[in-house]
Design a binder for these strands. Structure first.
Lengths: 83, 83
DNA sequence: TAGAAATATCCGATTTGGCGCATAAACAAA
DNA sequence: TTTGTTTATGCGCCAAATCGGATATTTCTA
């Protein structure tokens, strides 16, 4: 599992994976993050216009957080992100 | 400089710092990111409702990127973020 | 201190998130 | 297949981002 998050799609995929790893439904995650199930669905499917604060709330609910780092070349471990 | 990005404010601060380190004006950064100078201003001042894709575009223009990691306790190095 | 450069604000228009509420569609299990 | 769960959509609404265009306002520098 890569933690590279360059696109809304990648972020959505990571959120979905983290949620499932914790055995949470979208509704449960939505409750914890203080948003609606619909919003989780949109984020996981890569909604590019999601609000920053919403993403942050969802990550926090998953015990995750963003880190800002220097852009690196996407390596072999990131191949999955291409498709 | 911490790369912890839990709030719109922290993200805004990091963007501003990275921009200045590269000696770019908001207008120059805005051009590179394909947004308006006003938008950069809003992001740097911690606009919580910024669009995800806008943030990503700005980070890319600064050769930065998000990484999603497990939430950690904010340590001494993150004190600045509190104020 | 004057003038320029940089940043913060404002108007009107368009677009869209996220809300409440509701339901359809997809999936899994019995 | 049937039922229950989960996820994706839909409608109307309000708030706000972002845009084009422009201007205050703060900051720096010559």
């Amino acid at each position: 599992m890569t933690d590279l998050a360059r696109t809304p799609q990648q972020i959505g995929n990571l959120v979905r994976r983290a949620r499932k790893k914790r055995d949470l439904s979208q509704t449960q995650l939505a409750d914890q993050a203080g948003v609606r199930q619909e919003t989780i669905s949109l984020i996981e499917t890569g909604n590019p216009a999601a609000r920053l604060e919403t993403i942050l709330a969802v990550l926090a609910a998953l015990d995750l957080e963003f880190r800002i780092v220097a852009r690196r070349k996407a390596g072999p471990a990131d191949i999955e992100e291409i498709f």
